[in-house]
């Protein structure tokens, strides 16, 4: 139904996205139980292979795997041999020898998860590849929006910030538009260039132009490592032109929801009072992330065929 891997939201059919979101919706109930653990992936191994730093995505995937009773193994670049010059394929072969069922991979190069998916039998889940995509983030954002608005069809989502270099923005743009939402983007010219013309978005230049027409304002993190390299003069300048403060939120209206993939830079892309306001769903996004990743692991690994026990009948028959 969903296939072997989760590589990108671009090209994913509408029904598949709906199935993932519906499954995630049910998975949230497990998180409200006293025993937050269910057995479907018992005895399966999920490896997280992160070539870039990450705390929340990695822990979210690990927690999701644990809640489905899978074992998890974390392979992080700072402690592995890649720092000693090992290639991606050699690292992957080493992991392959440990017989994992799924590998969650983050890599600085776009397409690295696709390379692993083509060459190995295990399920690959893309946890962010370069500036290409971050599909589980896009799905958890879509679940969060669907919760509040009831439907993604016709929703107007404004994405503000460094859209050019954002895999979060790309996954959201592809997923949201497949589900019938409209995406507006705004950001400094150096971060929202003409290359975005190929994406199904409406480009505008100031934050005020997009927030007044939006049901959802999605802010992107300003990556400090990009500052001072001709892209952005200073965080203060960014805050005054593109930061979401209380005045801009008021202009947007009382029902607009504010999202951010985290980690947030208070006072840069989002002011502290907006981040802590009732319109902010930033912490819901974190909770939904676990449910979405549970749904993904369950749907991908749960479709593995195993030898049927002789004479056994399935539940489908009773």
């Amino acid at each position: 139904m969903i296939g072997k891997d989760l590589l990108q939201l671009r090209g994913m059919p509408r029904e598949t996205i709906a199935t993932i979101l519906d499954t995630a919706d049910q998975m949230r109930e497990v998180g409200r139980r006293r025993v937050k653990k269910v057995p479907p992936l018992r005895g399966r191994l999920v490896v997280t292979l992160f070539f870039e730093n990450s705390t929340r995505t990695k822990t979210s995937f690990e927690l999701a795997a644990k809640r489905l009773s899978a074992d998890t193994l974390s392979f992080s670049v700072s402690t592995s041999s890649t720092t000693k010059g090992e290639t991606l394929m050699d690292t992957a072969r080493t992991i392959f020898a440990m017989q994992p069922d799924a590998v969650v991979v983050r890599h600085g190069c776009a397409g690295a998860p696709h390379l692993l998916a083509r060459n190995f039998g295990w399920h690959v889940l893309n946890a962010g590849d370069g500036i290409h995509e971050h599909p589980s983030q896009g799905l958890l954002d879509m679940l969060t929006i669907r919760d509040r608005l009831g439907s993604l069809d016709g929703a107007r989502v404004a994405i503000v910030g460094d859209v050019q270099h954002s895999r979060v923005a790309r996954s959201n743009i592809w997923g949201l538009t497949t589900m019938g939402a409209r995406v507006l983007v705004a950001g400094p010219g150096t971060m929202c260039r003409a290359e975005l013309a190929g994406l199904p978005v409406e480009m505008r230049h100031t934050i005020d132009d997009v927030v007044r027409d939006a049901d959802v304002i999605m802010l992107l993190r300003i990556q400090h490592e990009r500052l001072g390299r001709g892209v952005l003069p200073s965080p203060r300048e960014y805050a005054s032109f593109y930061g979401l403060d209380l005045a801009r939120l008021k202009a947007a209206g009382p029902n607009v929801m504010v999202m951010h993939p985290g980690p947030i830079n208070r006072g840069v892309e989002i002011s502290a009072d907006v981040a802590d306001s009732a319109q902010s769903v930033i912490l819901d996004q974190v909770t939904n992330g676990i449910a979405v990743r549970m749904a993904l692991l369950y749907l991908l690994l749960g479709s593995d065929g195993a030898p049927e026990t002789a004479g056994g009948t399935s539940h489908a028959a009773d």
Partner: peptide, 20 residues
């Protein structure tokens, strides 16, 4: 909903949607 507790998840059948 007993879907997550089934003993035949890996028989290659298409899984039913999870219920609550």
């Amino acid at each position: 909903d007993i879907t997550l507790y089934r003993d035949d998840l890996y028989t290659g059948l298409e899984k039913p949607l999870l219920g609550d």
